[in-house]
Design a protein around this nucleic acid. Structure first.
Length: 299
DNA sequence: AGCGTGTCCTGGATGC
DNA sequence: TGCATCCAGGACACGC
């Protein structure tokens, strides 16, 4: 599924093609795609008619096309299976086509098999810290619908020490905190497991018992693993269309925890174990990431 | 208020 | 073989 590095690859691809262009036509084929857009599909289509796109920005896994003149943005979340395709091949199947846009000389398709992804038009509001709204943003604004999402670890305005402090004030398990988009955004199940493995930390470790140095180290690992993924996977900028299958190279070779249950830990050789956590799968090394005892274990 | 659970969805994998 | 069930995942509504 598209994780933050894939979403960033998509954002960069859209930015080179769509910035400064005008939206000439919009068609929505599935009402679920616009379920979170105020006023529904009709208002969505109406708000985009003749809109001129500014920058293409991203915060966590949300990306948006700024529409400066209207102080709004065209926002996308790709969910688990969403894709934004620019000028797709004529034989591209339309089975999961959810919306289609004519933007300047380009056609853009929003394709989404599982329909966890969605799109909306949202008013731009000032950022709480006065910095640019996200990566690629040209304005110190963020869509209202994205304002509750924290900055992601790749954002230069993201304050990791402050995030570490906020994390330690929580009374929950550290993996839950990593996945809390209101605390730090862009980390999904894959990167949470990778960051925990690198930090040699158990997913159920209680956040309140972490030292500042340990919390900061964990967040730094999350940032580093995402940087590496982006550097290794974000290579399709020149492709005719922008897809989210950047996983092919990086995912198989470089992941140390996710998807490796039963395989030997790359540090100590012990077979990794798969456990259920928050109704999700969690993979860890039973030796490097020992289960904490007593108060160090979150309930 | 803060925290944790349930729900949405589809297709591939697995079970019987 | 064919049908049923499970599983994957992010975000948010909701309840305690």
């Amino acid at each position: 599924m598209p994780e933050l590095p894939e979403v960033e690859t998509v954002r960069a691809g859209l930015a080179t093609r769509l910035a400064g262009q005008r939206i000439a036509a919009v068609e929505v084929y599935h009402p679920r795609a616009t379920r979170r857009s105020p006023g529904g599909t009709d208002a969505y289509v109406g708000a985009l008619r003749d809109a001129r796109i500014g920058g293409v920005a991203r915060r966590g896994k949300y990306l948006w096309l700024e529409i400066p003149a209207a102080h709004t943005a065209l926002v996308f979340h790709l969910g688990m299976s969403g894709q934004l395709l620019i000028d797709p091949r004529v034989d591209m199947p339309r089975t999961h086509l959810r919306a289609r846009y004519r933007v300047g000389p380009h056609e853009m398709w929003f394709v989404d098999q599982r329909t966890f992804g969605h799109t909306l038009v949202s008013a731009l509001v000032p950022t709480s810290d006065g910095a640019l709204g996200g990566w690629g943003a040209t304005m110190a604004t963020v869509p209202e619908a994205v304002a509750h999402i924290a900055r992601d670890p790749l954002d230069s305005a993201c304050d990791l020490p402050a995030t570490a402090k906020a994390m330690r004030r929580r009374s929950t398990a550290v993996k839950r905190a990593l996945l809390d988009q209101g605390l730090i955004s862009g980390i999904g199940n894959i990167y949470a497991d990778e960051a925990l493995w690198r930090a040699r930390m158990h997913p159920r470790r209680a956040t309140a018992t972490l030292r500042q140095s340990a919390a900061l180290a964990l967040l730094s690992h999350a940032r580093e693993v995402m940087r590496e993924a982006l550097a290794a996977g974000g290579t399709s900028f020149d492709a005719l269309y922008v897809d989210v299958s950047g996983r092919s190279g990086w995912f198989e070779r470089r992941l140390d925890a996710y998807g490796r249950a039963g395989l030997p830990c790359r540090r100590c050789g012990r077979p990794l174990v798969r456990e259920s956590f928050m109704n999700r799968s969690s993979v860890r090394c039973p030796r490097c990431q020992r289960r904490p005892s007593g108060a160090h274990l979150a309930p």
